[in-house]
Amino acid sequence: MGQPESVLILGGTGQAGARAAALLRQWHPALPLTIAGRDIDRAQRVAGELGAATAVTIDLRRSDLGLPADRTYSAVIAALWDDHLHGLRYAQHRGLPYLSISSGLVDIAPEVVAGAQRANAAPILLAGHYCAGTVVLAALHAARRFDRIDTIRISAVLDELDTGGPAGRADLRRWSTATTAGLVRRDGVFTWVAGPDAQADVRSTDGTDLPGRSIAIPDVPSLALATDAPDVRFDFAVGESVGRRRGEPVSFEVRIDLEGTGRGGAPISRSRYLVHPAGQRPLTATGIALGVERLLGLRGEAATPGIHTPEALIDPAYAVERMAETGAAFIGAPGDS
């Protein structure tokens, strides 16, 4: 394929956007990037560090994003909350792929409807999953040895100092305001849980239990429908990470518990931690960069028009390789077979 136009990264000066841009520069040195933010000086600093990148200011309250009419792009990446959906509509009107990471399960409906109304306009990648879909991909990679999956439980710890800056904290507040209930799949039925049913301890790699709860997150339907597992749950705790308890920088950890049967029909289980010594940001950035690759056809075929989720586009084995390059690792959990 020929060289694409520049990738427009809304929120490209933020932690997730800037780090994703750095990964794209590393993986695809000639790929043009446009760092878009409200502060032009900051955008210019990020673009200057990347090389082969430009900087622009944007206004998310405007349908044209405040960009000149003659500017052309290859994709629009919303590494922030696109509250007016002007980034999405900008992409749709120009037939450009679009990726978003801040629309949680309770607020993806406008994006889904917009995509359905213009199903042939361009691909939309809804990556409002934990760490932009990398946890789902890691779980699917761990599931490869199973013939049948009966139960999936994801248990995540987010350090309160690792929420991703002002935009990330705003996302957490918005999601918690929308609902305090969690979504699980129980006996094959997607069910809302609240109160004691939603509460669960989340155990860290050092054995520390943190109070957590089931949350409404796209990872649950993504994993349930990708594996046909009848029981799926995602529990989430915010607290001090193992790294910080050791006097080190904030760290990242997610426990992935799988139960089912192996190729011969014998019951098996697998428990693994996905960990990163630098917190959630490298994995979130990796999820964004992987999505851009597939949307543009930089790896494999370009995504077709319509609504997509990370696991529908990205090979889990390849995703895990990319995660490992950033310093992520799998470690066994007690009781793993």
Score class of each variant (00 low, 15 high):
91 A>N: 08
107 D>T: 14
108 I>V: 12
104 G>A: 13
104 G>D: 09
106 V>Q: 11
93 H>D: 09
113 V>D: 12
113 V>Y: 08
109 A>H: 13
100 S>Y: 03
103 S>T: 05
106 V>R: 14
114 A>M: 02
91 A>S: 10
90 Y>S: 05
87 G>L: 10
109 A>W: 15
95 G>Q: 06
105 L>K: 07
89 R>N: 11
84 H>G: 05
106 V>N: 11
88 L>E: 12
102 S>H: 08
91 A>V: 07
101 I>G: 01
95 G>E: 06
84 H>K: 07
110 P>M: 12
82 D>G: 03
91 A>Y: 02
113 V>H: 14
86 H>G: 07
113 V>K: 14
100 S>T: 09
87 G>V: 10
93 H>R: 14
103 S>K: 07
95 G>K: 03
83 D>H: 11
113 V>L: 13
104 G>H: 01
114 A>C: 04
84 H>N: 13
84 H>F: 15
113 V>Q: 12
113 V>A: 09
81 W>R: 04
105 L>A: 11
99 L>M: 15
102 S>G: 04
91 A>R: 05
113 V>E: 10
112 V>E: 12
98 Y>N: 03
93 H>P: 01
103 S>C: 03
84 H>Q: 15
89 R>E: 14
88 L>R: 15
98 Y>E: 01
99 L>R: 02
94 R>Q: 09
96 L>C: 02
82 D>Y: 09
91 A>C: 11
110 P>K: 11
110 P>S: 12
94 R>K: 14
83 D>K: 05
81 W>H: 06
106 V>F: 10
85 L>I: 00
107 D>Y: 05
